[in-house]
């Protein structure tokens, strides 16, 4: 067993291209491209109607940040469909067309690569990637800046396994229910007194870790009144699952009367 190769019949190295007399088969390419186009259209149609098929697929998108996330999720999915379909349709077509029941000792054509195709593939995925990065950076710049308007600051403190919310502009009123005025920019300053937590309001699409000894910040602009939930999104020990608080987005008037009532209780020395 000194020499295991087919010897002279084969070149020592893989070479690109169908250089060994492989007949091209354009009709397969034409067919599979048509199937791909149809599958892509159907796939995109499915994506655009997914929220109808699966009610409650996303939480109520109740902030301007959430609306951006909602759009991006759908947009990326639509972009992903043709790429995924390219792989699936080509693979499925190959399997359906060239499947053999059992091994017959026959080989396929000796195509070991196509420099043009490989270059095209890499360049187009690089372009797609570049687009995603530029898009992402633009969106990131957008959500990192304070939304316009008079900022309301809320200090969020995580401690195993409860959040509390302090309104520094209201004499330090502190509560375990978070109330926010609608259509007003909010700055959350988040910290933890013990271990890592993560402050997440799914309906507002904001999340920032609560790190002991540090203050992290995140902006939100609630746009829709309603009752939502704040959850802890970083495993923080025994009752991580129960580290949830009620969030109420109120009208401007509703918020003033709520915070007024809280101030009176707070002033009496009770919680």
């Amino acid at each position: 067993m000194a020499d295991l190769g087919p010897g002279a019949a084969a070149p020592g190295n893989p070479r690109g291209g169908a250089g060994r007399g492989v007949r091209p088969e354009p009709r397969h390419i034409r067919r599979v491209l048509v199937i791909w186009a149809i599958a892509t259209v159907l796939g995109i149609a499915l994506v655009l109607n997914l929220h109808r098929l699966l009610p409650g697929l996303l939480p109520p998108m109740a902030s301007s940040e959430a609306q951006g996330v909602d759009f991006t999720l759908g947009f990326f999915t639509v972009l992903a469909v043709p790429v995924a379909m390219l792989v699936w349709v080509f693979a499925a077509y190959s399997i359906a067309t060239w499947r053999v029941r059992r091994f017959e000792g026959l080989d396929g054509p000796p195509i070991s690569g196509s420099p043009v195709l490989q270059t095209t593939w890499i360049l187009s995925s690089a372009l797609l990637c570049l687009f995603l990065v530029v898009y992402g950076l633009a969106l990131l710049t957008n959500v990192s800046a304070a939304p316009p308007g008079r900022l309301l600051t809320v200090d969020v403190t995580g401690q195993q396994w409860q959040w509390n919310f302090k309104y520094p502009s209201r004499g330090g009123v502190t509560t375990t229910t978070l109330a926010l005025p609608v259509n007003r920019p909010i700055l959350f300053r988040v910290t933890s007194l013990d271990v890592d937590h993560s402050f997440w309001i799914p309906a507002l699409a904001i999340k920032i870790d609560a790190i002991p000894g540090e203050v992290t910040t995140v902006y939100a602009m609630p746009t829709r009144e309603g009752t939502y939930t704040a959850r802890c999104a970083e495993l923080c020990g025994l009752y991580h699952s129960y580290m949830q608080s009620r969030v109420r987005v109120l009208s401007a008037g509703g918020f003033s009367s709520w915070i007024g009532a809280q101030e009176r209780v707070w002033g009496r020395g009770g919680g």
Binding site: T157, Q159, N164, T174, T176, L193, V265, R268, G269, G270, G271
Partner: peptide, 13 residues
């Protein structure tokens, strides 16, 4: 957190 030194949610506070 001194917050938990306050009585909360009881009858009469």
């Amino acid at each position: 957190d001194p917050f938990y030194g306050r009585v909360q949610g009881t009858v009469g506070g």
